[in-house]
Design a protein around this nucleic acid. Structure first.
Length: 495
RNA sequence: GAUUCGGUAGCUCAGCUGGUAGAGCAGCACCCUUUUAAGGUGAUGGUCGACGGUUCGAAUCCGUCCCGAGUCACCA
């Protein structure tokens, strides 16, 4: 047992003293009649004859000789209590004097306003509901200015519960996160999509280009991967006869971490039989407007220093037109040598030995992406980087029916007219397999079971993936993914 | 991975060119029955991220490592 610091010792001594006074510091329940916000909202309807009962965590305390004030905070807000010795009794007042910020307190009393006009509860009785034995960060505030704010990012991420207790705007962000995901479900449900769950532990990973986490199942004695995407399972369900399915999907990718990448993150993917990527564009546009409206109540957002507006029709431009517009270069007829030459002329650093598709992708990221501020569907991608998408119906064999949605220079959604020709699909995955053998750790492995499923017949289908963390960052104006994940991945601290 | 900045009391921070650790808030004792960054008086509180080195002496200088943030690179 570590030596307790003086502060911790004092709290434990208080706890002991409370027990010795015959008070259980951890009772079982408390009947509430109101939450804090209801007292403020309904102030005029309360009289001194009406007893209300509230409970919450003590968030501020001002002790005086024979009467004191404190604030308690519940999930609706905070409210002040007035606690006078002559009303609650000498013994109870002694107990109250031992309480700290961080303790949970129940109160019964009547509603009144202090002489400075603050709506408060005049306590008839108080009840300790849980004693805190470790001091909370103390944040004070006057006229909207915070003093001693709990601001250390490392501590905030590692001890998110403290962040939530003392930083109300953090709590708000996570409430909005929850609303966004629930609005998304509502929209998909209303459009008759069926929510499904597919395996997180997969014998073969696929559906995206990424390096996986590996694990091991003891009974089966086999290697399993944490999914990098649920795409191939959702397509099996389309093959199985579900016509509209979706999954809110935790994905795991064993790659670098930074402001926009956490090893586990949340996406939604949905698959829509008999539809193509054009219909899926209209649908995603509607979806985003619905979610914005339902969860945040606006179509205008500020993100990464840009103002974006969802109320205008989203732009739709082909990848090659965009490179022409921003780079004055024609990618469709370019050879790999010409693409390399273009990169050099624009000072774009690229590795040796990239193929056509990878080079185009590089050029697009450098030359075009920073310009895509208002929502823009970028359409017609090179086939080489889209092994699960259908060749374009216009007959151009180099491109596929695919779009990505860009907002504020970042990608938010990815969609294909899904490839459903089993022989073409096998060829494309075998191409990927060659890239793997050549050392591309992110190329897709061949999933024989998936290919076999497709051989039984898959309807024409549109498939969409949306990165929810990014959407949440945008809609809550946070530039770091760590600020919209309750428990972002951190190295263990050695404290 | 490269690079910059940072890690000192529960929280927020100061402590520069080496002389043995400081403030505010919190906590503790006493006073205080409408306060609200409550107030007053007093006494406390530290493995200065870790380990080495230089030195009579290291929070401070040097080295290695750990943790975080920012930027860049990589990465859907």
């Amino acid at each position: 047992m570590e030596e307790l610091s003086q502060l911790l010792k004092v709290r434990r001594e208080k706890l002991q003293a409370i027990r010795e006074a015959g008070v259980n510091p951890y009772p079982y329940s408390f009947e509430r009649t109101h939450k804090a916000s209801q007292i403020f909202d309904g102030f005029d309807s309360f009289t001194e004859n009406e007893t209300v009962a509230l409970a919450g965590r003590i968030s501020a305390i001002r002790k005086m000789g024979k009467a004191s004030f404190c604030h308690i905070t519940d999930d609706s807000g905070k409210i002040q209590l007035y606690i006078a010795r002559d009303i609650i009794g000498v013994e109870n007042y002694q107990i109250f004097k031992k309480l700290d910020i961080g303790d949970f307190l129940g109160v019964k009393g009547y509603v009144f306003k202090t002489k400075t006009g603050e709506t408060s509860i005049h306590a008839d009785s108080i009840e300790l509901l849980s004693k805190n034995i470790r001091p909370l960060p103390i944040v004070k505030e006057k006229d909207g200015v915070l003093y001693d704010a709990f601001a250390d990012k490392e501590l905030r991420y590692r001890k998110r519960y403290l962040d939530l207790i003392v930083n109300p705007e953090v709590k708000k962000t996570f409430i909005t996160r929850s609303k966004i995901i629930s609005a998304l479900r509502k929209f998909l449900d209303q459009n008759e999509f069926l929510e499904v769950e597919t395996p997180i532990l997969q014998p073969i990973y696929g559906g995206a280009a990424a390096r996986p986490f590996e694990t091991h199942h003891n009974t089966l004695d086999m290697k399993l991967y944490l999914r990098i995407a649920d795409e191939l399972y959702l397509k099996r369900l389309i093959i199985g006869g579900f016509e509209k399915v979706y999954e809110v999907c935790k994905n795991f990718r064993n790659e670098g971490m930074d402001k926009t990448h956490n090893p586990e993150f949340t996406a939604v993917e949905f698959y829509w039989a008999y539809a193509d990527y054009n219909q899926a564009m209209d649908f995603v546009e509607e979806l985003i407007r619905f979610v914005a409206d339902e969860a945040v109540g606006t179509q205008k957002f500020h993100f990464r220093g840009f103002d974006v507006d969802f109320s205008q029709k989203f732009a739709r431009e082909s990848m090659s037109d965009l490179v022409k517009k921003h780079g004055n270069f024609e990618i469709l007829d370019a050879t790999e040598e010409e693409l390399y030459a273009f990169c050099k002329s624009k000072n774009i650093e690229v590795e040796k030995g990239l193929n056509y598709g990878q080079l185009v992708d590089e050029i697009f990221s450098e030359v075009v992406e920073p310009h895509l501020i208002q929502p823009t569907f970028v359409i017609e991608y090179p086939k080489a980087i889209s092994p699960l998408a259908k060749t374009h119906r216009n007959g151009d064999d180099r491109i596929v029916e695919r779009y990505e949605l860009f907002i504020a220079g970042k990608e938010f959604a990815n969609c294909f007219s899904e490839l459903n020709d089993p022989i073409d699909q096998r060829n494309r995955l075998e191409e990927q397999s060659k890239l793997r053998d050549a050392g591309d750790e992110e190329a897709h492995p061949v999933d024989e079971d998936f290919l076999e499923a497709m051989e039984y017949g898959m309807p024409p289908t549109a498939g969409v993936g949306i990165g929810l963390d990014r959407l949440i960052m945008l809609m809550t104006n946070n530039d770091s993914i760590k600020d919209i994940l309750l428990f972002p991945q951190m190295r263990p601290s050695n404290e």
